[in-house]
């Protein structure tokens, strides 16, 4: 008999996320991995500023709430103080790829032995649907009301591709949580990232393509479809770096 149960690494506090938002799925995946590794007691999680700011209430491990964009630096401080602990950050696209770009790039450059779970939903959720650094060309937001104009607002950033170029990045993979198959793959990727950290191989990041039905102005079902039809072609899923695999076979 299979019993569907809440992971131990999640608290009993009910999530505050909107209907159809995929944050809850990703929280659960991270918590399952923590349970499977049996590391809740030696894990410190870093919450961002953004929709998932309250992540510190949801995870049962010790948690720190970081200033906007600074989670990778905070994680660095924790990891350097306690190198045998597991440290992960959970960040959205504005936090990680706009205000916190420098901090993100440099944990990669330093090969900081931490894991970033990066939620890319191509929009600012918490502040109500403004343009993100990952907002697609032509995509509507409250600060790109006529569609993202690349001449005016510049180009979106492909985070995994960028971080994969850094010598200190050990593992970078982009996944999605739009269907059961992809959710299973996302779980595998998160497991892999924690394993890389466990083996002290360097920096690991899992970028998760996620939905924001509320700010996309779509139903949850439409949002999942848009993720597949519009986001995936621009942000292809796959492993961008994995130093545990030899390139020449």
């Amino acid at each position: 008999m299979v019993v569907f149960d809440k992971p131990k690494a999640l608290t009993d506090v009910p999530f505050h996320y909107c209907p159809g938002c995929t944050h809850g799925i990703v929280h659960r995946l991270v918590a399952e991995v923590i349970d499977e590794f049996g590391i809740e007691g030696k894990t410190v999680g870093i919450a961002p500023v953004g929709c998932s700011v309250f992540a510190y209430n949801y995870f049962n491990c010790d948690m720190i709430e970081a200033p906007h964009g600074r989670a990778p630096a905070v994680a660095t401080g924790v990891k350097r103080a306690m190198p045998d602990n597991f440290v992960f950050t959970y960040q959205g696209d504005g936090d990680l790829a706009a205000i916190g770009t420098a901090e993100t790039v440099h944990v990669g450059a330093r090969g900081e032995n931490i894991t970033i779970i990066f939620i890319n939903n191509a929009i600012y959720g918490m502040t109500g649907g403004q343009m993100a650094p990952t907002t697609l060309p032509g995509q509507y937001s409250t600060t790109s009301p006529y569609g993202r104009d690349l001449k005016l607002q510049g180009n979106p950033i492909r985070v995994c591709e960028m971080l994969a170029t850094l010598d200190g990045t050990a593992y970078a993979e982009r996944v999605a949580v739009d269907c059961v198959k992809n959710i299973n793959n996302a779980k595998k990727a998160i497991r892999k990232a924690f394993e890389v950290q466990k083996n002290k191989l360097g920096f690991s990041i899992v970028e998760v393509l996620s939905t924001c039905p509320t700010n996309w102005g779509k139903t949850p079902q439409e949002a999942l479809e848009w993720l597949r039809s519009d986001m995936m072609p621009f942000y292809p899923l796959g492993v961008y770096k994995d130093i545990t695999v030899k390139e020449d076979k």
Binding site: V44, A66, T76, R80, A102, E103, H106
Partner: peptide
């Protein structure tokens, strides 16, 4: 001990925040 040169003053103070959170002197 460790002396880490951060990428910016902003990163440095947030590394302090992280390390201080663990209870270590920083």
């Amino acid at each position: 001990g460790l002396c880490v040169q951060a990428e910016s003053e902003i990163a440095a103070i947030n590394m302090v925040l992280g390390a201080a959170s663990t209870g270590k002197r920083v």
